[in-house]
Amino acid sequence: MNDVFGYIAYGDNEVYHFGALLSALKLLHNCPGAKIIIATDRPELFRRYPVETMAITADQKEQMSFGRRYHFGIKAACLIDLLKRADRLLFMDTDMYPVGNISRCFEAITPRQSIMRLCEGPHAWCPRLEGKDVRIGDHVLTGHEPMWNSGVLGVHRDNLAALIDAYPPMIAVHEITKIDAAEQFCIGIALSQDGRAISSHRLPIRNYNTRGKKAFASPRVLEFFKTHDDAPIAEQIRRAGRYRLWRTPLDAWPQRHRWSL
Rank of each mutant, 00 (worst) to 15 (best):
R104E: 12
H201W: 10
D41V: 07
Q193T: 01
R117F: 14
F72T: 12
R196D: 08
I136Y: 06
H257P: 00
A9M: 02
E183D: 15
G11D: 00
G241F: 03
D87V: 06
G137Q: 09
I198A: 04
E120F: 00
A24L: 10
M1C: 02
V4N: 03
R206E: 15
T53H: 04
L160A: 02
E223H: 14
S23W: 05
W259R: 14
A182Y: 02
C119Y: 09
H201V: 10
I171M: 07
G19W: 01
P219S: 05
I171E: 08
S114E: 04
N2S: 08
I136R: 11
L89S: 12
P98E: 08
F106L: 10
E44R: 04
K132Y: 03
P127G: 06
G137S: 07
R104F: 08
Y97K: 04
I80Q: 11
G121N: 02
A24T: 14
A252D: 12
L83M: 00
D87N: 13
L250C: 04
A161Q: 10
M116N: 01
H201Y: 03
E183H: 07
R112Q: 15
E44F: 12
A182N: 05
L245H: 03
E107R: 11
Q193H: 03
D81K: 15
H139R: 08
R128M: 14
E44I: 04
P98C: 08
L191P: 05
V15S: 10
R196F: 04
L82G: 05
S200I: 07
L129Y: 04
I56V: 13
R244F: 01
S65A: 12
N13Y: 09
N101L: 05
F5S: 12
L163P: 00
D133Q: 13
R239K: 15
R104I: 09
D12F: 02
H123I: 01
F224Y: 11
V51N: 07
R88C: 11
D87P: 03
L89H: 06
G188I: 00
Y243H: 06
L21V: 04
V221W: 10
Y70Q: 06
I38C: 00
E14H: 12
W253Y: 14
P43G: 02
R206G: 08
M92H: 11
